[in-house]
Structures are given as C-alpha cells and as structure tokens.
Computed example of a mutant assay.
Amino acid sequence: MTMLPPDFNRLSPEIQDAWRSRINREAIEAATAEYHAEERLKPRHGPADTRGATYRVAPPDAPPAFVPAYTKGLVALTGAELLQREFPAREFLLSPWLPSKALAMIFAERGIGKTWVGLNIAHAAAGHGSFLRWSAARSCRVVYIDGEMPAGALKDRYAAIVAGSDFDAPEDHFRLVAADLQPDGLPDLADPTAQRFYDDVIADADLVVVDNLSTVCRALRENEADSWGPVQSWCLRQRAAGRSVLLIHHAGKGGGQRGTSRKEDVLDSVISLKRPIDYDASEGARFEVHYSKARGFWGEDAAPFEARLVDGKWTVGEIAVDDSPDTIRAMKESGATVREIADRLGMSKSAVDRKLKGGRE
C-alpha cells in the first residue's frame, strides 16, 4: 500500500489531494478484490447446478473499483451568503465565446481544418491577439495537447501561423504536448488513473486545448453517455482550478458532434465548422462557423460567418444564403436533413418543406 511521502506537508494542496486520492483508490481496489474473493467462496442458496458447485456473483451494489476521495467535504451557501460572496470577474481569453473558467468544443468533419483553427486560437490567446472575429483580452498561458499529427507537421503549421500573424506570443505562453514527443505516447485522458500525468504540464495554464477527443481520450466510448463521465470530471476539475478547456472533436454522420450529446451538457460554447454549399476542393481551407451552443452571448456575436485562408491570411465574411428551391433540393439530395438545411439557411423546417414541395411541383 502506498504511504504518504516524508515531505507531504510541504507539498502544494493540489499534489496533496492527488496523493490522498491515490491512497484511497488503492485501498478501495484492495477491499474490492478481497470482497470478490470471499463472495466466490460462498455457496448459493438453493439446489446446486449440474456441475456440482455454484458460486454467487457480486451483487449490483458491490463496491466500485474507484471512488474519488472527498477529503474536504461539500460547501453550501445560503441565499444571503451567495449574494454577499465576491467572485472574480470572468475575462475573455477569446471573446465572445471563450471566457476564463470555460469549457468549450469545436467539431467538424475530417479535413475541414480543425487543427488549423485550434492552433490559431491557441496562438491568439497566448499572444493577446485575434483570430477570425475573436479577440483576446490579454496574453494567457496555453497548453496544446495533440494526439494525432506528427510533431514535424505541427511545427510547420505553427510556423506558418506565427509568420502570418501581426503579433507575437511570449515564448513560455504556448506549450505543445504532442504524442510524437512522448516515449510512451500520451496518457489516456479518459482513464482517471492516467489523468494525473497531465497535472504538472498544465499546472500554470489558463487554457488547455485537447486535439482531439478520439486520440487523446482513447478509452472513451463516444456513443455511451456513462463513458463520458471521467472526461467530464477532469474538465470540471480544470474549471474549478481556474483553467479553460477547449475540446476538438469530429462531427458525426448526422452533422452534429460525434457520439453522445451528454458531452455538451457542461459546455459553455459549442462551435461547428461546416463546408459551404458551393465549396470546391481547390479552395483549401474555407468553412462556415456556426454556434450550436452559445451560453452568455447572443445577437451579432452569435451570428454564423464564413472564414477562408488565402495566401497565409484569414478572411471572414457573411454567409451567402441561397434559399431557392433548386439549392434546397440539391442539399436534400446530397444527404442533408430538413433540420440541417433549416439550420444552415436560417429558416424554419416548415419553410424548407414548403420550398421542397414547391420545387417538385
């Protein structure tokens, strides 16, 4: 059994909590193993089966393999205490959608440019700069965790981003944690026992970018809501510690983020990157930016727009809306649902239905 280190009282509160959690986890795992060993030896009440012996299985309420250590108790405020409590004002790491202590997601189909967008966001936040229609209120420390791309390719992309920017980020305000650079690969962020290996590298970060969920959270079963629990708990701990987290994810076949919708429950902002209706592969990085969840901002700030990379420079503009019956019918024939068409064109589903019927007539 793990014991507390001799200099335990000199460690930071966060490291002390990690030690307590580890010791508590090992004790629970040992007790669980002992419980199952004893249960296997107990005979089942009733007649034996044809093999001559029967054994009881663990009941549904058997101790779990891991229970977090709640060493400090829960805090509850009365209404009066809540009104009198002073909370630090949330500043924008990137306005209008990424404040401090925020959880957000960007998702898109493969090949649209998720990593380009993620790296540009990281550079803008680290350098007190701007990207697309978003601007940083100050320079902050960013840790970019990438589990997919070769480190050399990430270097080339970041070099292009820096070269095309009119601002610089302090050297220690952007840090890359790439799978290629780790002798044993990245720890699985969906595994509660492996999450602690990220503690040191993100200790002073204001923003943590995870690119992407499929490669960094390898044990995550995307379509199972319960599987999201460990990752959500990790995200909430980062928010409680004063950090923001941006998750980069893939889009599913239906156009939404891939997997269970439970991922979006605790998120402040969810951004979808989509191909324009008239997109051509020769155009390279060109996409529409849509806010599928916008907590705390609205109106023009939450309006969709189009972005395009031309000669190393990003340009933005309004989305050209063509709501003619021919265009809507073409979108339907390409596999888009009525809801997706309505969302893309800013129309109601009934209006889309009328256009489709009118086009057929």
Results as ranks from 00 to 15, higher is better:
353 D>C: 06
118 G>S: 10
23 I>N: 00
4 L>I: 12
312 G>P: 07
133 R>W: 06
276 P>L: 01
293 K>Y: 06
46 G>I: 10
104 A>F: 05
239 R>D: 11
158 Y>C: 05
184 D>G: 08
246 L>D: 02
24 N>G: 12
125 A>G: 06
256 G>K: 04
311 D>H: 12
50 T>Q: 14
285 A>I: 05
294 A>M: 08
39 E>R: 15
131 F>E: 01
350 S>H: 06
7 D>H: 15
233 S>F: 03
188 D>P: 06
246 L>N: 01
164 G>H: 09
83 L>W: 09
359 G>C: 10
91 E>I: 04
67 V>D: 11
180 D>W: 05
342 A>C: 09
111 G>F: 09
157 R>E: 03
166 D>F: 07
360 R>N: 14
336 A>Y: 09
146 D>W: 02
71 T>Q: 11
356 L>A: 11
252 G>K: 04
17 D>T: 09
119 L>A: 06
45 H>N: 13
130 S>C: 01
246 L>V: 08
186 L>D: 03
32 T>G: 10
259 G>C: 07
60 P>W: 11
209 V>E: 02
10 R>V: 04
251 A>L: 05
311 D>N: 13
16 Q>D: 07
183 P>S: 12
109 E>L: 07
33 A>Y: 10
45 H>Q: 13
333 E>N: 12
276 P>M: 01
309 L>T: 08
302 A>H: 04
51 R>A: 12
100 S>M: 10
17 D>Q: 13
235 C>D: 03
291 Y>Q: 07
159 A>F: 08
148 E>L: 08
14 E>L: 09
261 S>D: 11
337 T>E: 07
152 G>R: 12
198 Y>P: 00
165 S>L: 08
50 T>N: 06
